[in-house]
Amino acid sequence: MYEFVSGPLVWIAFIVFVSGMVYQFVTMLRSARKDKVIYPYMSLKYSLRSLFHWMIPFASRNMRDRYEVTIVTFLFHICLILGPIFLLAHIAMFAFAWGFKWQTLSQVAGTYMTIVVILASLFLLLRRLMMPEIQFVTDPSDYLLLAIAAAPFITGLAANQQWFDYQTTVIVHIITGAVMLMLIPFTRLSHMLFFPFTRAYMGSEFGAVRNARDW
């Protein structure tokens, strides 16, 4: 089992993830041609201006008004993306398989980043449960997606701390990680891919057409 999940399954997950992202990207570009306003209005300058204001914490008004969400979501996304990429255990797996490695986080930093992701997920869950305007637009898939995103981190922490049988926990951890990767292109987790483009278009329309700010 371990051989399967740590070998072929990881391959499958990455192949599905990458090809799914490419598919979504190409589909978006094609349908953007049909949406006649997109290419004519796109502007690099205003796309970057908009991205800048929405990728720097507190650079937009809503990020300042909802500062607690800003802090948590920035930490959440940074730890969620960078944590796994620079985690010692992950890099060690690659090093064993392929013989090359890259800069790693310290063990402690990796653990803390994992805990941040878990706590942030909890925050997002509570927010969803407690705020009427979010509860109103929540359906079961929202909880599921949050669970899918949090699961690799919860199981990763459990494996690292050896709370349960190590071998089993690692297997569950790899499966949850693979599931998340494979689902990114095909669920709302695809905002990972679409974010720069929706932002860029809105920035362009506000900047180049409407001569106004969008932050």
């Binding site: 953007a32 049909k34 949406d35 997109i38 679409f194």
Partner: peptide
């Protein structure tokens, strides 16, 4: 087209 579909997915 793209705007509608991507907005709904995002």
């Amino acid at each position: 087209a793209a705007r509608f579909k991507v907005y709904m997915k995002t």
